[in-house]
Amino acid sequence: MSVQAASLPVTASPRKRRFRLRPSRIVLNVVLAAVAIFWLVPAIGIAIISLRPNASFEQSGWWTVLTAPAQLTFNNYQQLFSAGFKPGGVLDSLTTSIAITVPVTILVTVISSLTAYSLVFGRWRGRTLVFLLIVAMLVLPLQMALIPIASLYKVFDTSTGLHLFGSLIGAIIFHVAFGLPFGIFLMRNFYSGIPHDLLEAGRIDGAGEWTLFRKVVMPIGIPALASLAIFQFIWVWNDLLVALIFLGNSSHITLTMYLYSWTRALSSNYWIISTGAMISIIIPLIVFFAFQRYFVRGVLAGAVK
């Protein structure tokens, strides 16, 4: 092949060169393929287990499906879904997870975005100090705050007669509070890169602060907002600890709690866990693919010189 390429006229060589496999590229591709397989094999294994009859789990390994694809069935899914939306069932857990994760993601994204706007473009004293305090909160371990805040909720519930502890609202508030420092940090850093001239041009054009936020800053900040939304969604979706503390006594549990409830020290129901895990993966995947198109580089191109 190299002989053929060498005999080609000079003008044709760039086109050909694109298809030539250099040794460094081969090594890179092999490494990338190895990493991809390393990450994909467990996920493929879970997917296959969820599609095999539950009795076959103890008889043969999931990889045997490669030689006998006929074993695959949707029975496990049918069985899990047959309970409907009964509290404690997989569909109820899925709904509960969505009911917590979606509002938390929206609230964290919106509040972080607004706060970051004020921190970057506002004209009030002490902005830097407030930002430093927010950054300081990033180092606060979530585990350290769980029990004090749970106690605080109980005091609040006792004094007001409301029901914050053990409710979805309580879990949402906790997640939002702990999601905001990172969200504000991320958005503030992104907005800092937006030239102030753009906002000043907007002010001269007649825009007020709200219009500037909505029509100038937010559209430019979409890549950062999409990143934040994905991170936040996945963190809350995969959370078990907060859910266990704040929803431990609730009849509605999250998907992670549902899966956890099926793990046993000696004999776990792997078919339920793997089927539930697949259901649990699908939603974040949808979110990821829905937002990933907004990861567009160079969104500020042409704004300023």
Binding site: P195, D197, L198, E200, A201, G202, R203, I204, D205, G206, A207, G208, K215, V216, P219, I220, V299, L300, A301, G302, A303, V304, K305
Partner: peptide
């Protein structure tokens, strides 16, 4: 600024990057 009946051209152009030329001018 919006009530001063002025328009300003910036050194850095300050065009809205997510809007078309038409939308920039119409904003």
């Amino acid at each position: 600024p919006r009530d001063r009946d002025i328009a300003m051209v910036f050194q850095s152009y300050a065009l809205y990057p997510h809007m078309s030329v038409r939308d920039n001018m119409a904003f």
